[in-house]
Computed example of a mutant assay.
Amino acid sequence: MHEYSIACEIFDTVMATAEKNKAAAVNAITLEIGGLTHVNPEQLMFCLDVLSRNSIAEGAKVNVNFVPPSGECECGYRGDAGVPDKLRDEDHPSLYEYAIQTCPVCGKQLQLVDGDELMIRTIDIEI
């Protein structure tokens, strides 16, 4: 369960930012999670909820924005890596399914360049 260690890092960063800005409360946190991280958002939010108990971040809303993988091709295409139609019903296609995507312009295999990020985009605090 790597979500716990990720949650610890997020919580530490949020609390350090809140302390630096002399915050009385943390109201919301917005995260960006790439589709290739394979982070379970429910587990991550559960861990953040447990870690924030009895702190100024207790009860903070956690917003998650998912970032789809993107790829680039030697022909110059750069954009959405897409998900094969047969996988669109699955919540989390495997890395393999993304890695075999072809360029919509020339048909060659795409090189994945984005989609593995996990970032704190915003921290909404009350001073």
Results as ranks from 00 to 15, higher is better:
1 M>Q: 11
1 M>C: 10
2 H>Q: 10
2 H>A: 10
3 E>T: 02
5 S>F: 09
6 I>N: 07
6 I>S: 07
9 E>S: 14
12 D>S: 15
13 T>P: 08
14 V>D: 01
15 M>L: 15
18 A>V: 07
19 E>G: 09
20 K>G: 03
22 K>S: 15
22 K>P: 02
22 K>N: 15
22 K>H: 14
25 A>T: 10
25 A>C: 08
27 N>S: 12
28 A>T: 04
29 I>A: 06
29 I>L: 15
31 L>Y: 00
31 L>T: 00
32 E>F: 00
33 I>R: 03
33 I>P: 02
33 I>K: 00
35 G>K: 00
36 L>Q: 07
36 L>I: 05
37 T>S: 07
38 H>K: 12
40 N>P: 01
41 P>E: 13
41 P>N: 04
43 Q>C: 12
44 L>I: 05
44 L>H: 04
46 F>S: 08
46 F>D: 11
47 C>M: 01
47 C>N: 11
49 D>R: 13
51 L>P: 06
51 L>S: 06
52 S>M: 05
53 R>T: 09
53 R>F: 02
55 S>H: 10
55 S>F: 06
56 I>L: 10
56 I>D: 05
57 A>V: 03
57 A>W: 02
59 G>W: 09
59 G>D: 06
59 G>T: 08
61 K>L: 11
62 V>S: 03
62 V>L: 06
63 N>D: 14
63 N>R: 10
64 V>R: 02
64 V>Q: 05
65 N>L: 15
65 N>H: 13
70 S>D: 09
70 S>H: 09
73 C>K: 08
74 E>I: 11
74 E>M: 10
78 R>V: 14
78 R>T: 12
78 R>F: 11
78 R>L: 12
79 G>P: 07
81 A>W: 00
81 A>P: 01
82 G>A: 07
83 V>G: 00
85 D>G: 04
85 D>H: 01
90 E>Y: 12
90 E>N: 11
91 D>R: 14
91 D>G: 13
93 P>C: 05
93 P>T: 03
95 L>N: 07
96 Y>N: 10
97 E>V: 01
98 Y>I: 06
99 A>M: 14
99 A>F: 09
101 Q>H: 11
102 T>K: 15
106 C>F: 04
106 C>Q: 03
107 G>D: 03
107 G>C: 00
108 K>Y: 08
110 L>S: 07
113 V>M: 05
115 G>T: 00
116 D>S: 13
116 D>V: 00
118 L>S: 04
121 R>E: 15
121 R>Y: 10
122 T>I: 05
122 T>N: 14
123 I>L: 03
125 I>S: 04
126 E>G: 08
127 I>V: 14
